[in-house]
Simulated scan of single mutants.
Amino acid sequence: MSGLRVEEQPDRLVVTLDRPEKRNAIDADLIAALHEVCAELEARPRMLLLTGGTDGIFAGGADIAQLRERGRLDALAAINSAAFARIRALPMPTVAAIDGPALGGGAELAYACDLRICSERAIFGQPEVRLGILAGAGATHRLPALVGETRAKELLFTGRRVDAAEALRIGLVNQVVAAPEELLPAAHALIDEMAKGSALALRLTKLAVDAPTGAHPQLDLVSQAVLFTDEEKQRRMTEFLERRRGR
């Protein structure tokens, strides 16, 4: 895939942004490749680990040369935001592993994932207003959900950059690792923990959490009804009770 390296594992897809000469800038070809990844994970649901690798860059933002040439119809076509929304809506949990800068569209790509782990040299920022545009690929609604409206407005209005320590403190990331070489093992460890659960339970839990507020508790009830009749639930609960009796 153009701009991506993809590694298939039984329960996850590891996708690495691979445009080092452009600081992993997000261009039209990379967006097309992300759509291909989404199509694969929609057809065969697995967890996603999305990373820029451990060479000190996640994604430096959208490709400014391409962005400069886009007009109002391009904006209305939701080129980047549609791909990021598709990532957000993937059936199974997604994890972004961030080493170095995640700026502009690169940060929005990370926000589209369910969970984020970063190295100590990670940096997040939304510089769009300084380029005469807004953060139109998800930051205006995902960032407030992550860090609160007031903090999000400050970051979106000023373009101020956030380092790893602050990102952890304000809830932008779930975990910070000290060294870049610890990043991918930590991300895989997090996915390993999730993989201990029932795949269907994970999928329905994500669906419930991401549903509009008005869908609760009805969606919870329907999802639980589905799970209560699942053979996996019976097996797991039987094994749990047998372990307790064996103590």
Rank of each mutant, 00 (worst) to 15 (best):
R86T: 12
T158Q: 15
D18W: 14
F240P: 01
A32E: 09
P127E: 12
E36K: 11
A78W: 06
L34D: 03
R161N: 09
L172N: 00
E149P: 02
P212T: 08
I31H: 00
D55W: 04
L184W: 04
A152E: 00
D220L: 07
A39E: 13
E120D: 11
A39C: 07
P185D: 11
R88H: 12
G104I: 06
G105K: 01
R130A: 14
A82V: 08
L41A: 06
G197T: 14
M47Q: 15
I64R: 12
M47S: 11
L34H: 03
D210K: 14
L73Q: 15
A78R: 15
E128P: 08
A178C: 15
G136W: 01
D55C: 09
A187H: 01
S223D: 10
V162H: 02
L221K: 10
V222T: 08
L49W: 04
E182P: 00
A89N: 12
G197E: 11
D74K: 03
V162C: 04
E21F: 09
A152M: 05
P212E: 13
I31G: 01
P217S: 05
V6R: 04
A62I: 13
V15Q: 00
R161S: 06
R121C: 10
L168T: 07
G60D: 09
G3K: 01
S198Y: 10
E21P: 02
D220Y: 03
V147P: 01
K206Q: 13
T229S: 09
L30E: 02
Q224I: 08
D74M: 09
A107Q: 02
D230Q: 03
A208P: 00
R44I: 12
F124S: 04
I133K: 08
R23L: 14
G138D: 08
A112M: 04
A102Q: 02
M47F: 07
L155W: 05
R142I: 08
E21S: 13
R151M: 09
E166H: 12
